[in-house]
Write a protein that binds this DNA or RNA. Structure first.
Length: 424
RNA sequence: GGAGGAGUGGCAGAGCGGUUGAAUGCACUGGUCUUGAAAACCAGCAUACCUUUACGGGUAUCGGGGGUUCGAAUCCCUCCUCCUCCGCCA
């Protein structure tokens, strides 16, 4: 959520940058400015009335002590009238505030200057293309879902039996490979200075609001209505919320956190070839990295995160490319996002395995997450996060790219974790 | 799940209807003293919003929400959290 003040002071710039993501609602922007002014006016009025009530109350107390009953009674009627007035003002204030909140919630983050205009994923800019070789597959090769069946790596039909579509059951070496990837990613994050967390998988409404899942995107999350809790769609939610309502010192930066969690997404996806196998699931595993940064450092941090994710893919030997998302494809809360896609050789497709974003102050405003500068002034921090990495598509690409006549080869870096070299 | 008790500033801890945004101690910051440090002493030290060029002023906040009252940290209702005991349980 942007700050009303920021919008007011940067009206033209905000409008201009938002056109990059096809947001052109100048009316909404102006409404915010008007509502915010109205809010201030009402508060000034009601503060004045409250001040009168407060001082009268003190006088009434004194008058009673002095036995001046009549004067006291007179003031009491005054106070009663003010209270009626105050109540009306407060009702108006509540209305204005909720309208303002709604309007602010409808405004997406302002894209970074480097974000290209565009409507769909086809307009994304290839920030770093793959210049290496693509895997050479054997004559007879298979997409990962057929390999899964052949080698007993995961079973979607069993998942349907237990739960429903989109809930895979990993088994045998498939389960071990999954566990190996998680451990590998966490170890790499630790080496890069990220502190590991194991957060709750259910969060309350406040947390879901903090990172921007609520309101608006409730359809995306599984909701345990009896207890009013939400299954997390990503570790970003609990981990970023660790710092909700906090005031940091400049020396606390950078804050680097990581965590492995299962992720749950309701999004009733389409069916067909593009979502077959592990391409799109309701439950999947992911290691996430989250950073809380000084505003001046946040873009350097973003670069650092890109490097980290690229390093993981290099070590796994997967061909990948990096995209800079265009305005139309950019998430609502993000100022700048880079997607990583790996090439899955049997499907002959690029699969998104990571999304690394800088939210600038869009989340921290909601989270009330600030820092104190050298002059003791408080400012909002910048928050960032990225997948490092999402497991299913990594697994899909590994299976497809590493298949041989004799089985599927495990990448060198994972062998200490799996303790087997080949799935056959 | 049952029965009790408690939630006050960064921490500890007073206050239990009227200049109490809140005593006191610790911590923290600045100063005096000191060759330096410690100690001692003096001063400052919550958050949010509104207002002011500035100095400053106003309002709200004593777990959250609601109520009683001219006036609530203090009384009432409700929710949350924590502690103790009992039950259940990986």
């Amino acid at each position: 959520m942007l700050q009303a003040n920021f919008i007011k002071e940067n009206r033209e710039k905000v409008l201009e940058r938002l056109t990059v993501r096809n947001f052109k609602d100048a009316h909404l922007i102006d409404e915010i400015i008007i509502l915010d002014q109205k809010r201030k006016d009402i508060q000034a009025d009601s503060d004045n009335i409250q001040a009168s009530i407060n001082s009268s109350s003190k006088e009434i107390g004194n008058l009673f002590k002095q036995g001046k009953k009549e004067e006291a009674e007179e003031k009491r009627t005054n106070v009663a009238n003010w209270k009626i007035e105050l109540k009306e003002l407060q009702e108006e204030a509540d209305l204005v505030k909720s309208k303002l909140e709604d309007a602010l919630l409808a405004v997406p983050n302002v894209p970074h200057p480097s974000v290209p205009a565009g409507n769909t994923d086809e307009d994304n800019e290839v920030f770093k293309a793959w210049e290496g070789d693509f895997p050479k597959l054997p004559e007879r090769h298979f997409p990962h879902w057929e390999l899964a069946e052949k080698y007993g790596i995961f079973d979607l039909k069993l998942g349907v039996k237990l739960t429903g579509a989109g809930f895979p059951v990993y088994r045998g070496k498939g389960a071990k490979l999954q566990r190996a990837l998680i451990a590998f990613f966490l170890d790499e994050a630790e080496k890069a200075g990220y502190e590991e967390f194991i957060p709750p998988l259910l969060v309350n409404e406040e947390s879901a609001r903090g990172t921007g899942q609520l309101p608006d995107k409730e359809g995306q999350m599984y909701h345990a209505t009896v207890d009013d809790l939400y299954l997390i769609p990503t570790a970003e939610v609990p981990i970023t919320n660790l710092y909700r309502d906090a005031i940091l010192n400049e020396k606390d930066f950078p804050i680097k956190m990581t965590g492995y969690t299962p992720c749950f997404r309701r999004e009733a996806g389409s069916y067909g070839a593009h979502v077959r196998g592990l391409n799109r699931l309701h439950q999947f595993d992911k290691v996430e990295i989250v950073r809380i940064e000084h505003p001046e450092q946040s873009y350097a941090a973003l670069d650092d995160m890109l490097e980290h994710v690229a390093g993981l893919l290099d070590k796994l030997g997967l061909p990948y490319r990096i995209l800079r998302l265009c305005g139309g494809d950019l998430g609502f809360t993000s100022a700048l996002t880079f997607d990583f896609e790996v090439f899955s050789a049997a499907q002959e497709r690029w699969l998104e395995v990571s999304s690394v974003s800088n939210f600038e102050t869009f989340q921290s405003n909601r989270l009330k997450l600030r820092y104190r500068d050298a002059n003791n002034k408080k400012h909002l921090v910048h928050t960032l996060n990225g997948s490092a990495l999402a497991l299913p598509r990594i697994l899909a690409a590994l299976l497809e790219n590493n298949q041989t006549e004799n089985g599927i080869l495990v990448p060198e870096v994972l062998r200490p974790y799996t303790r087997f070299d080949i799935i056959d």
